[in-house]
Computed example of a mutant assay.
Amino acid sequence: MSGIETHVEKILEVKSVKKHFKLGKGQVVQAVDNVSFDVYKGETLGLVGESGCGKSTIGRTIIRLYKATEGEILFKGKDVNRLKGKELKRFNREMQMIFQDPYASLNPRMTVLDIIAEGLDIHDLASGKARREKVVELLKTVGLNEEHADRFPHEFSGGQRQRIGIARALAVDPDFIIADEPISALDVSIQAQVVNLMKKLQREKGLTYLFIAHDLSMVKYISDRVGVMYLGNLVELADSQELYDNPMHPYTEALLSAVPIPDPNVEKRRERIILKGDVPSPINPPSGCRFRTRCPKAMDICAEVTPVWQQVRPLHWVSCHLYQEDSLKKEEAKKGPVAAR
Rank of each mutant, 00 (worst) to 15 (best):
Q193M: 09
Q160I: 07
L201N: 15
V172T: 07
P174G: 02
H148C: 11
D187E: 09
R203W: 07
D180W: 01
P174M: 01
Y209V: 09
L197S: 15
L216P: 00
I178H: 13
A185K: 05
L210N: 00
D187T: 06
N196A: 13
I177E: 01
A169Q: 12
V188D: 04
R161T: 15
K199T: 08
I183E: 00
A185W: 01
G206H: 08
T208V: 03
S184H: 02
M198D: 10
E146S: 13
F211V: 01
A179P: 13
F152I: 06
Q162G: 12
H148P: 01
H214S: 04
L210G: 04
I212E: 10
L144P: 05
S184R: 05
V219R: 00
F176H: 05
G206I: 03
L210E: 02
S217E: 07
Q191I: 03
I164F: 07
R151G: 12
A149P: 00
A192I: 08
G159K: 08
L197I: 09
A213E: 07
K205S: 06
I190E: 10
K205F: 12
E146R: 09
Q162N: 15
A179R: 09
K199H: 04
F156E: 07
K199I: 12
D175R: 06
D180N: 04
E146P: 01
D215N: 15
M198T: 15
T208N: 03
E146C: 03
I178C: 10
V195R: 10
E181F: 12
E155L: 10
A213N: 08
R168K: 15
P174Y: 04
